[in-house]
C-alpha cells in the first residue's frame, strides 16, 4: 500500500529523512498484520513453533498419563 502524499492520515506514511527519498511506511493495519502482539512471541514463526511445541508437550504428557495409569 502506498501513501497519499500531502494528506494527513495517521495510519499512513511518513517521509524518510534519508537522501530526500520518500519511503512508503506500512499502514498501521499492515503493521498489525506483521506483528503478533504477543509477549515473548514477536514473529509468526515463533507463534507457530509455540503451537507446535504445545502439541508435542500434549503428546508427551498424554503418553506419560497413559503409562502412569495403565
Amino acid at each position: 500500500m502506498t501513501s497519499k502524499q500531502g494528506q494527513e492520515d495517521p495510519d499512513h506514511v511518513k517521509s524518510s529523512a534519508v537522501a530526500g527519498q520518500d519511503e512508503a511506511v506500512p499502514s498501521r493495519a499492515q503493521v498489525d498484520d506483521e506483528v503478533t502482539g504477543l509477549p515473548g512471541l514477536r514473529s509468526w514463526r515463533a507463534v507457530y513453533l509455540f503451537v507446535l511445541g504445545s502439541f508435542v508437550l500434549y503428546v508427551v504428557v498424554l503418553a506419560w498419563f497413559t503409562r502412569y495409569y495403565s
Binding site: 493495519a29 498489525d32 503478533t36 503451537v51
Partner: peptide, 18 residues
C-alpha cells in the same frame, strides 16, 4: 486483520486437544 484471524486459528491449535 490478518493477525486476528491467525490468532483465532492458533487459539484452536493450542486448545482443541485439551
Amino acid at each position: 486483520s490478518l493477525r486476528e484471524s491467525r490468532l483465532g486459528l492458533m487459539f484452536n491449535g493450542v486448545f482443541k486437544i485439551p
